[in-house]
Simulated assay, not measured.
Amino acid sequence: MRRLVLAALLLAVPAAAQEVRLPVFEAGVAGGGGWLPDYPAADQNHIRGIAAPFVIYRGELLRADDQGVRGRLLRGERLGLDLSFSGAFPSSSDDNRARRGMPDLDWQGEVGPALRLTLWRDVARPRRVNLELPVRAVFSSDLASVRYRGVVFSPELAVEDRAVGLEALGLRGARFRLGVGPIFATERLQRYFYEVEPQYARADRPAYRAKAGYLGTRLQFSLRVPITPAFSFVGGGRVENFAGAANADSPLHRRDWNATVALGFAWSLYQSAAAVASSADPFD
């Protein structure tokens, strides 16, 4: 989905697990772009990009960094509870054959709690296997108004490795992540993607009423590499399958497979003099 590039911006923000002390506050600019499907199960991709400021805050109870926003109220060795975010680019219906004449798909944002269960970990390497259970509310915006679009549940089995063999090149603190899992969405969100109201029906696009349920399954990966203490690079990709989805018979469900490729960067322009000791846990 188009949200991979926006997620890449969060993954790209600089982090240095090997440092003894880290700035409490950082600010800079992140950017990214990629070749992205217009919407889930679309049969067209387009190149899209974005640049935006970012901030990192490393507080005792609240942290906002490359792992998201975390309340740190539940952070045991095996169990964690975070506040997770995601997003997606807008898509013009004029540029998509299946949706031509229909309303555009606006900017999308997701926010909600994510329970993390660590199934296995090797701190010495360091690497771990997580079962992540995010439940997010979805909103869309045309930058003039915001509309609630439903809820998405996307459990994921993820492998995370923070020592990916780049130390010999002087690139310390790299992180690789690979995740796979299904996606389920409420009727309201499914309607946003797949419903065809009668006024938008035509010979090759009959009216259709979307329903809640299984949306698809995705396999995604990302690699973040700190080039300097202030500059990081991130690359990633995603493959999604929508066969057997609840709305596979919608005229807007055009392809069972989607692929995404994305690249991004983050440049830290300010680091506070105040610092905080980095945790002994490389995943904290």
Rank of each mutant, 00 (worst) to 15 (best):
L74N: 06
A51P: 07
N96A: 11
I50E: 10
N96S: 14
A88Y: 01
D82M: 08
R72T: 00
I50D: 02
S84G: 11
R78L: 10
R78I: 00
R63C: 05
F89T: 11
F85Y: 08
A88F: 01
A98K: 03
G87S: 13
S86F: 01
V69Q: 06
L83G: 15
D95E: 12
A64T: 05
F54N: 00
R48K: 13
R100A: 14
A64Q: 01
R58L: 03
G68F: 01
G80D: 15
A64E: 00
V55C: 08
L61M: 13
G76K: 04
M102I: 08
D95G: 04
F89G: 09
V69K: 00
A88K: 05
P90D: 06
A88S: 14
A98Q: 06
P103A: 03
S92T: 04
A51E: 12
R70N: 14
G59S: 05
G101P: 14
F85N: 02
L74R: 12
A88N: 08
R99S: 03
L74A: 05
E60P: 14
R63T: 14
D66I: 08
V55I: 12
G59E: 12
R97Q: 11
S93T: 03
F89H: 10
P103D: 10
G101I: 05
M102E: 12
R100L: 12
R63A: 06
G87M: 00
N96P: 08
P103I: 05
G68V: 08
L83Y: 04
R100H: 15
R78F: 04
R99Q: 04
R97T: 11
L62G: 08
S91L: 04
L62R: 07
L79M: 09
G101D: 11
S84T: 14
D82K: 07
R70Y: 06
R70M: 03
G49P: 09
S93Q: 02
S92C: 02
P103F: 07
G80A: 11
D82I: 04
G49D: 00
A51D: 07
R48F: 03
R99C: 05
F89R: 06
L79T: 15
M102Q: 15
E77I: 04
L74F: 14
P103C: 06
L81A: 09
D65V: 13
D94N: 14
V69G: 04
R70F: 09
L61N: 11
G80E: 12
A51G: 11
N96V: 15
A88H: 04
G76M: 12
G59D: 05
L73A: 05
S93M: 11
V55M: 15
